[in-house]
């Protein structure tokens, strides 16, 4: 199974989770996701997701100018984003439990149809 396909469905909640504790700019979020084990995540996918979550009202955004180089755009979570994260956590927990049960039981001899 291709992990990048699975990642597409959960990138929103993953991005929300990494900005929950601390605001981050695009590549910073990418780095944190990779550090957490999602090594195949694409830069552009993360930037696009940040943008979409911002548009959906789940994130705030502000620009931090830099003296040395180009400015950075930071994203932070807001109340709506937290609510979304909370909901998606529950959905994920239930879903993963269901999948775990399904996959565990289907490996039992005689039950795999």
């Amino acid at each position: 199974m291709d992990a990048t396909q699975l990642l597409k469905g959960v990138l929103d909640v993953a991005v929300l989770a990494v900005v929950e504790d601390e605001d981050g700019y695009g590549y910073d979020v990418v780095r944190r996701l990779r550090a957490a084990g999602l090594e195949e995540v694409g830069d552009a996918s993360v930037y696009g997701t940040l943008r979409r979550l911002y548009t959906a009202g789940a994130l705030t955004s502000y620009v931090v100018p830099s003296e040395e180089g180009p400015h950075r755009k930071y994203y932070g979570i807001n109340a709506q984003g937290r609510a979304m994260l909370e909901l998606q956590r529950k959905v994920w927990t239930e879903f993963s439990t269901t999948m775990n049960n399904l996959l565990t039981s289907s490996t039992q001899p005689g039950e795999a149809a």
């Binding site: 590549y27 930037y47 180009p70």
Partner: peptide, 14 residues
């Protein structure tokens, strides 16, 4: 603009 704001900085860092 919104989508690519900070793109150069991110890329440079990466």
């Amino acid at each position: 603009d919104d989508l690519t704001d900070g793109l150069e900085a991110d890329l440079a860092e990466a």
